[in-house]
Write a protein that binds this DNA or RNA. Structure first.
Length: 639
DNA sequence: TCTCCGCGTCTTTAGACAGCATGTC
DNA sequence: CTAAAGACGCGGAGA
């Protein structure tokens, strides 16, 4: 099947042909046969880089009306926006939390790219463009199974389907174990394939040999390891060097941020592919110890990448790798699911990760996503993924990751926090005003599809009484309605728990002496909510933080003897302290040194605090009171 | 007396979505 | 079902 045979305009056909796309890949042809270009609903469970984007474009370009492309990450939204924006005669809009697009004109575009939360929020707040959609494409639908964010996606899709009856839905998934269940839920045809444009061989390293799944072998010379050398690290170094020496780029995945940096330092000593100019450019992005370490490594062609990096540094590393100025990136799993950064070879040194109480195997799906980064279409003759093991683990790694299928995608909707959030939002946005009404909305979720025997009304009833106790919902006379607080909580897009915590904080403030209400008070409230990320509190800092908490006890809305659990509250105090020092003029470098967090962590917490302080201000209005500190601190956060 | 090494113990551990309203130029 | 590696600190041996 050829591009020119598709129902596309001449301009589009020549755009594709001039980019070397003439003949459809087999999965793309299968999607066309399943009807993507004629308004048909399709779920495509196919590997990364096998032409998913083209399938999406086909659906959106042939749909008779505006299209929405839903992604899980802002960085991905920007990447797709740029891709779609290159299509001739197509107007593209973008809507994410950090990107201020003018809402009013969103409906005028042919394609809108948005994160799933942004779409959820738009639906809740009655954005008019939602009703006019003809086509919705969901990227990475397998995230339906992600705790925390999966429920948002399934409610969003359930609501979209109800509000726009003839909507064309196209869902793109990684290869998972139960794509047919997702397809069945969405009433879509399933296209399943493992075909890739660049062949990929996956193997396990042990004893100086990589044994691949296609029966081939690769010998690697690993210099004898000294007493202080880690065997897996030395093997990783050898595998990386081998890839670079034969003209390929390499991604190395490790367990933690610190190890990503350590491996980069180790590889920098090998002087693989000098790029001094890149080091200078990175230096210009501003100095923190992490930034300087990065630029030093980059001079030798080695980069590292993790969420502790400021986003400007992350983007610079991704771009430098794409431009082939970096030969290697040592990364945590950030790079596995983010923007497109393909390499000739992927080396996965660590396959276990700390999960809060013990070391657990990384999910098969995650490892497959990392492996999927191997092989650049049009640039590499093949891709290789290597799991580093040893004689003892080789067989297990093969069974667990090379031969095995990825996990099934299971709904996480019955998580209490998710249920509270969505019951509140359904009522607050006026989609239902009774138990049965809410249950009816939920009957279209993936959860209901997977658990047909669960009594949704019963599930909802429990949640409703919780929300009543939190003063967010009113259920008198059997009719459900959101209280002013509940409406504001839903509109501000904070979780019910966060809303209730802020409200109780505001009430405590009203009982406090004026001189005790300070910036610290506002920050303590906002940092003590589940919507603010925790900041690790080290053992050594604990005593100091305890002292700090005591000396400012009068300013906090939580009495120390009431804090429960105390450790969690002390963690919130640490975050509040960091943010407070930020508002007082400390720069990232000082904070990073003082509190042992990454530059990127400071950045992300400042961002969230802005959002939550805004929500707190809005909740004040709903309570008919005013705490100017919320606005004042917020203004100080963003210089 | 200073330095360095060996060894036992302590510390730390991936990622990252989201809001708004009202008037004014 | 399930931890593991690096940093740190201390004591002792050697220069």
């Amino acid at each position: 099947m050829r591009v020119r045979d598709l129902p596309l305009s001449a301009a589009l056909v020549s755009h594709y042909e001039s980019n070397g796309i003439e003949e459809l890949y087999p999965p793309q042809a299968a999607a066309v046969e399943a009807g993507v270009a004629e308004g048909g609903r399709v779920v495509a469970a196919i590997p990364t880089a096998s032409g998913k984007t083209f399938i999406a474009e086909l659906a959106m370009l042939t749909a008779e009306g505006p299209a929405l492309y839903i992604v899980p990450l802002r960085a991905l939204a920007r990447e797709k926006y740029e891709t779609f924006d290159r299509l001739p005669g197509v107007s593209v809009g973008i809507s994410t939390g950090d990107f201020d697009a003018d809402e009013a004109e969103l409906g005028d575009h042919d394609i809108v790219v948005a994160t799933s939360e942004k779409v959820d929020s738009a639906i809740r707040n009655g954005a008019p463009w939602v009703e006019r959609l003809a086509c919705v494409v969901v990227d990475e639908v397998h995230l339906l199974g992600a705790p925390g964010r999966g429920p948002t996606l399934e409610v969003t899709l359930a609501t979209l389907q109800r509000r726009v009856p003839d909507l064309q839905l196209v869902a793109l998934s990684a290869t998972v174990d139960n794509p047919e269940v997702i397809a069945d839920w969405l009433d879509a045809a399933l296209v399943e394939s493992t075909w890739r444009p660049v062949s990929l061989r996956t193997g396990v390293y042990a004893d100086e040999t990589v044994e691949f799944d296609d029966g081939t072998d690769l010998d690697v010379v690993v210099p004898p390891t000294g007493p202080n050398d880690d065997e897996a690290t030395e093997a990783t170094v050898a595998l990386v060097e081998d890839a670079v020496e034969t003209g390929g780029q390499c991604l190395a995945f490790v367990r933690s941020r610190r190890e990503a940096e350590a491996l980069a330092d180790r590889l920098a000593g090998e002087d693989l592919s000098p790029a001094p100019a890149l080091g200078d450019e990175l230096d210009e992005l501003g100095g923190t110890a992490t930034g300087r370490q990065l630029s030093e490594c980059a001079r030798t062609g080695v980069g590292f990448h993790h969420a502790g990096l400021r986003s400007a540094h992350r983007v610079a590393v991704e771009n430098a790798f794409r431009d082939r100025r970096l030969a290697v990136i040592c990364a945590t799993p950030t790079l596995a699911a983010g923007v497109n950064v393909p390499a000739r070879r992927v080396v996965i040194r660590d396959q276990k990760r700390y999960t809060g109480d013990s070391m657990a195997w990384i999910p098969v799906l995650d490892v497959h996503q990392m492996c999927g980064r191997a092989g650049r279409p049009h640039l590499d003759p093949f891709g290789e993924a290597v799991l580093v093991g040893d004689a003892d683990t080789k067989a297990e790694l093969f069974d667990r990751y090379v031969t095995a299928d990825a996990e099934a995608v299971d709904s996480q909707f019955d998580d209490p926090e998710a249920l509270r959030t969505h019951v509140l939002s359904v009522v607050a946005s006026g989609f239902a005003d009774s138990l049965d009404g809410v249950a009816d909305v939920f009957s279209a979720t993936y959860y209901a599809h997977q658990n047909p025997s669960v009594d949704l009304a019963e599930l909802v009833a429990d949640v409703v009484s919780e929300l009543e106790a939190m003063e967010l919902l009113d259920a008198t006379g059997g009719t459900l309605s959101a209280t002013t607080l509940g409406a504001q909580t839903s509109r501000q897009y904070v979780s019910p728990t966060t809303g209730a915590r802020i409200v109780s904080g505001i009430r405590t403030i009203e009982t406090m002496a004026d001189e005790h209400v300070t910036a610290r008070t506002a920050l303590e409230i906002v940092c003590d909510t589940p919507d603010m990320h925790d900041t690790y509190l080290g053992n050594r800092e604990r005593a100091l933080m305890y002292q700090y908490a005591r000396s400012h006890a009068a300013e906090f809305t939580t009495a120390m003897h009431d804090a429960d659990p105390f450790e969690e509250w002390l963690t919130a105090v640490k975050t509040a302290r960091i943010l407070h020092e930020w508002t007082e003029g400390s720069d990232i470098e000082e904070l990073v040194e003082r509190y042992r967090i990454g530059p990127g962590d400071v950045e992300s917490r400042v961002e969230r605090a802005e959002w939550l302080l805004g929500a707190a201000d809005a909740l004040c209005a709903a309570l008919d009171t005013d705490v100017p500190e919320f606005r004042e601190v917020r203004a100080l956060l963003s210089p």
